[in-house]
Simulated scan of single mutants.
Amino acid sequence: MEKSLVPTQIEFRSVTKTYGPVAAVKDVSLKVHRGEFLTILGPSGSGKTTTLMLLAGFEAPTKGDILVAGKSVSAVPSYRRDQGIVFQSYALFPHLTVRRNLEFPLEMRGVRAAERTTRVDRILERVHLSDLCDRMPSQLSGGQQQRVALARALIADPPILLLDEPLGALDRNLREQMQGEIKSLHKDFGITTVCVTHDQEEALTLSDRIVVMREGRIEQTDTPEALYDRPASRFVANFLGEANILENPGFHVESAAPQPLGTLAMIRPERICVFPINKTKLAATDQRQSVIGTVEDMIYAGPLRKYRVRVGNSLLMVREHVASGQEIFRPSDEVRLEWLRSDIRFVAA
């Protein structure tokens, strides 16, 4: 179904939140489609967590309105909003077993004992915790506690799931495993999900769309692919991955399209190929740009090798996947860099 035809589940209408003279969120307007996984991404102080707290009902807008399924919820307290919430700290009840943690929200909704047992057994199996149902939270690993928190948020079948830095407390390997688990759960349950994170990889992996915030405002909203490949501003280009901003580079930048006024040329590091200076140029040279530079640094990062290459006034970052038989360049080596002119993007300064 076309995204434009999917009903809007959540809508922010010119929402502002101030704390005294400080505006944490400034005139934010946003629509979240039913069943969508939307991530709010930004650095510390960008307003992303405040935006989520407004949606959760822990804060009230100073101006504007928030609608869920077409009805205003700005004055509705958090406990009366039909939503599941997962916090970075998990917020499990430490004195209750896994099973009792999952039964609690159903008890609060008046679900009968037999139905509670059925639902808990079903979701324990879904998150692979059936064998751990009688353990206390302190007896679980971080990843297991995270799965319990997700299961508790989902067990009452809420129409909306809110995730506040859900994987921030996990190490890298567990974080990657849980990204897959969250993605799978979202696909299975189809719940409209709003996630807040500062982790760019997490946002790119999980999201249908990403909202990038800066200083309380929305800088850009788009799909992960569009945001990464076509960032609207220098801030988005630098925040979402690495970017070579070609500002007064010291060489003429060739591109497939004219450069709009007030913009800067940009190219992603993985779009640049690095060769020995005497190697035959790639085919279709009329579609490519070639420059000569000097390697200043080489960084080995497991599956990737990163070079910093001085070209004119610019220090370009080049990123390539490590492969057997690949030539390795060292500091002071002269190299030739090539890229497609069509890979040059233009961003607002």
Score class of each variant (00 low, 15 high):
residue 208 D to S: 00
residue 35 G to L: 08
residue 50 T to L: 02
residue 174 L to M: 08
residue 58 F to V: 00
residue 260 P to D: 14
residue 347 V to P: 02
residue 294 T to M: 15
residue 232 A to S: 11
residue 177 Q to C: 12
residue 286 D to T: 14
residue 212 V to T: 01
residue 347 V to Y: 04
residue 144 Q to P: 09
residue 163 L to F: 03
residue 199 D to Y: 10
residue 43 P to V: 02
residue 5 L to E: 11
residue 110 G to L: 01
residue 217 R to F: 03
residue 185 L to Y: 09
residue 313 N to V: 12
residue 260 P to Q: 12
residue 324 S to Q: 13
residue 320 E to Q: 11
residue 48 K to Y: 05
residue 82 D to A: 05
residue 167 L to C: 06
residue 145 Q to Y: 10
residue 278 N to D: 13
residue 314 S to Y: 11
residue 57 G to F: 05
residue 244 N to S: 08
residue 321 H to K: 13
residue 305 R to S: 14
residue 108 M to D: 04
residue 177 Q to N: 14
residue 264 L to W: 03
residue 297 D to W: 09
residue 289 Q to R: 01
residue 126 R to S: 08
residue 39 T to M: 02
residue 205 T to R: 10
residue 59 E to M: 02
residue 137 P to G: 12
residue 238 N to P: 01
residue 218 I to E: 00
residue 32 V to L: 06
residue 344 I to C: 09
residue 291 V to S: 07
residue 193 T to R: 07
residue 309 V to S: 13
residue 143 G to C: 02
residue 197 T to A: 03
residue 209 R to F: 02
residue 141 S to V: 11
residue 259 Q to I: 11
residue 226 A to K: 14
residue 323 A to G: 05
residue 167 L to D: 04
residue 38 L to Q: 00
residue 313 N to W: 13
residue 332 S to P: 08
residue 30 L to D: 08
residue 248 N to Y: 03
residue 72 S to H: 00
residue 127 V to I: 15
residue 39 T to I: 02
residue 68 V to C: 09
residue 278 N to R: 12
residue 141 S to H: 08
residue 245 I to L: 05
residue 185 L to H: 09
residue 233 S to M: 00
residue 260 P to V: 12
residue 243 A to W: 01
residue 99 R to W: 05
residue 337 L to K: 03
residue 333 D to E: 04
residue 21 P to E: 15
residue 177 Q to G: 12
residue 329 F to Y: 09
residue 257 A to E: 15
residue 223 T to V: 04
residue 299 I to T: 14
residue 295 V to R: 07
residue 67 L to F: 11
residue 36 E to R: 05
residue 58 F to I: 01
residue 302 G to M: 10
residue 109 R to I: 10
residue 244 N to C: 07
residue 297 D to Q: 13
residue 281 K to Q: 06
residue 179 Q to H: 10
residue 251 F to H: 07
residue 99 R to C: 06
residue 144 Q to H: 10
residue 274 V to Y: 06
residue 41 L to M: 05
residue 177 Q to I: 13
residue 241 G to F: 00
residue 295 V to M: 10
residue 235 F to M: 01
residue 111 V to H: 07
residue 230 R to C: 03
residue 9 Q to W: 14
residue 231 P to M: 00
residue 97 T to D: 07
residue 18 T to K: 15
residue 14 S to K: 15
residue 171 D to N: 02
residue 216 G to I: 12
residue 192 T to L: 06
residue 235 F to T: 01
residue 95 H to Q: 09
residue 121 D to W: 04
residue 326 Q to F: 08
residue 330 R to Q: 11
residue 321 H to F: 12
residue 82 D to V: 05
residue 26 K to R: 15
residue 205 T to D: 08
residue 198 H to E: 02
residue 135 R to I: 11
residue 307 Y to D: 10
residue 32 V to S: 03
residue 314 S to V: 08
residue 273 C to G: 12
residue 237 A to E: 01
residue 151 A to V: 06
residue 130 S to D: 14
residue 346 F to H: 11
residue 257 A to Y: 15
residue 313 N to E: 13
residue 12 F to N: 04
residue 73 V to L: 06
residue 94 P to H: 11
residue 342 S to H: 14
residue 149 A to E: 10
residue 34 R to M: 11
residue 116 R to P: 09
residue 59 E to N: 04
